[in-house]
Amino acid sequence: MNNPPVPAVRLAGVMKRFGDFAALNDVNLEIAAGEKVVICGPSGSGKSTLIRCINHIEQHDGGQIVVNGIKLDRSADSIAQVRSVTGMVFQNFNLFPHMTILDNCTIAPRTTLKLSRAEAEARAMELLAKVRIGDQAGKYPSQLSGGQQQRAAIARSLCMQPGIMLFDEPTSALDPEMVKEVLETMKTLAGEGMTMICVTHEMGFAREVADRVVFMDRGSIMEQGRPDEFFGNPQTDRARQFLSQIIH
């Protein structure tokens, strides 16, 4: 027998508190390499906190988080290792406003990976072309539309060649007509075998792309399953209630 493959992400009994509020309460979740998982749930249910703990933007208070076999303890070394294999896309893009799109994409490869300017720029231009904003490389973020900014942010993440991409409500801050272009970019990535964990309310995207939908409420995972199972036959009242509110 072969050893079972190392999961991309394994959460065991993860706890996170903000003061008296339990944002995550004993969360257990295992995500295989290449798997696409959509996390949904009402606001305040802990879904953003969950993915922010995976790359240690929030520090969990209890339980275990193991990413690609690297256990997140509080050491700078484990944090850097985990961050080197994860990329993150934020709701508000968080592009660096004082740098051009190209500089946004090259700063991490140049400073962290020590690539030369030419290597970093070649890599960035390739990825910017892939998200179809190659012609915007010399502009500042404020000169781009929201959809273009989010695609630039995705390209910026990809420049570090992560195996796992974390999306924290990537389309929630976008005007409706720009949602599609960002989702298309994400679908392209999904088709290339990237492990993806997406917090999103885009149920169409979940149905089409996700291998699994995880439903959270009040800091716990209430249920999970294949998208057709989850949408067709939700098991918990909370999930039924949630779905009736977001699907019109």
């Binding site: 933007i57 961050r83 934020f90 968080n94 991490a108 962290t112 942010a153 910026r156 993440s157 570090m160």
Partner: peptide, 13 residues
């Protein structure tokens, strides 16, 4: 904004 630092962290800067 805090998100600027978080973006830096996520890029392993």
């Amino acid at each position: 904004p805090k998100g600027q630092t978080e973006a830096g962290w996520s890029l392993n800067l």
